[in-house]
Write a protein that binds this DNA or RNA. Structure first.
Lengths: 220, 220
DNA sequence: TGTAATTTTGCATCCTGTGCAAGTTTGGCC
DNA sequence: GGCCAAACTTGCACAGGATGCAAAATTACA
């Protein structure tokens, strides 16, 4: 029943099972995205989605625990890839540079647009918003792990935690700005996201100041 | 039917309606907390909770949209108070100091213990975890508003966003450490939380470095 | 005391999410 | 090919979440 997915990336030859699995998986995410665009993330039921994807309601739940999980799937995948890439960066690279490179590594135009779109969808749907917060939080935990080998061995948990959280906060801020700027119709620009992320990480690295301390009202 | 709440703080004399409302509200949160302690946050149904609070299932949903919302109510209230207090701090106080004072302002021993307890409960319950992430995110939005008057007028949204997010990340890190340290039975200490928060905010203010830049693996 | 506003409650209804068992497809082996 | 086992899909059942609605109870106030 399921059509084989269009791009078959290199690697070990996939069995028919893996092929089918990937195909339904993509059918679901595609249908979920389409329906979310049409009716909002909370504007349709699992039955509708299952029918649109050509599977049974029960099968949907074999793949995803909720509609939101299906809609945010691209975000999760992106963040997984991004922070996995951290381990491929040279060990002596400064943390901020490594993170920047890892996150903005291989983001294409369409993926960037998709990420922004899903990000901004959460404005209209609380469930989706919470899901996305959760995904970013999971990413933060991955980042903490990835950061440990790059921090002095005697670093406190507090530092690791606060630093990872701050970096994630910068990434979210950059994503949010990119989403906001994308709304007016112009194509989402990976370069713009890269620049925003770089800018926010620079702010972080400087302790959010340009002249000695976090800006006071009177400081300039 | 509902008992009047124990402490009736000063202010305009409450009508019977307001009194009853407060009473059932507290009855619900108290029952929710008790049940969450006994069975975990996801370990009981709304029917059980409603019965324990002495109300009907339907009435519960007039007060809270979910069990998690009832359990995390103290956290939400705390963060609301905390960031509202930001507006009472002197306008020329450095941001970090103002935030520190606002958050650790009037936290009592019991409240601190409660916050830590709820925080650590989310380890066993995904719904509760997402709820709490959402509450902290709402707090971040409040913080952004409170930050604006304290930042140069020409500050970018990116800066406001990234700074607020980083501060929240520090607060969460401090809360997490406090929760972790509290587990071993010793009473939760507001002072310890204050110190943790101060430490993390100092790290943030210093751009997470002690000697010039975010620490490299070889830097010490 | 009577009337209007507010709250509680039960009921109906739709939807989510999961266990289970029967059916179907795929992989591997003779 | 034919056959068995593993994996996957599907329908069904069921507990529970969440909301609208209208009747009943409570409270406010003139």
């Amino acid at each position: 029943m399921p059509e084989p997915p269009t791009p078959s990336p290199p690697g070990p030859p996939e069995s028919r099972r893996e092929l089918n699995r990937r195909a339904t998986h993509e059918a679901i995410t595609a249908a979920a995205l389409r329906l979310a665009r049409e009716h909002g993330a909370g504007g349709f039921t699992v039955d509708t989605l299952a029918e649109a994807a050509g599977i049974s309601r029960r099968t949907f739940f074999n793949y995803f625990p909720s509609i939101e999980a299906a809609v945010t799937q691209p975000v999760e995948e992106f963040l997984d890839r991004a922070f996995a890439r951290l381990y491929e960066r040279p060990a002596d690279e400064p943390i901020v540079d490594a993170v920047l490179a890892a996150i903005t590594g291989d983001v294409g135009q369409e993926e960037m647009a998709l990420l922004c779109e899903v990000y901004s969808m959460s404005a209209d749907d609380e469930q989706l918003e919470r899901m996305q917060l959760w995904i970013w939080d999971k990413a933060q935990q991955k980042l903490e792990e990835g950061l440990k080998p790059r921090l002095p061995a005697d670093s406190s948990e507090l530092l690791t935690d606060a630093l990872a959280g701050s970096i994630i906060a910068c990434a979210k801020a950059a994503m949010r700005q990119a989403s906001g700027q994308t709304a007016p119709g112009q194509a989402a620009d990976p370069q713009a996201f890269h620049d925003l992320l770089l800018a926010s990480l620079d702010l972080l690295r400087a302790g959010f100041n340009t002249n000695g301390s976090i800006p006071h009202p009177k400081d300039n």
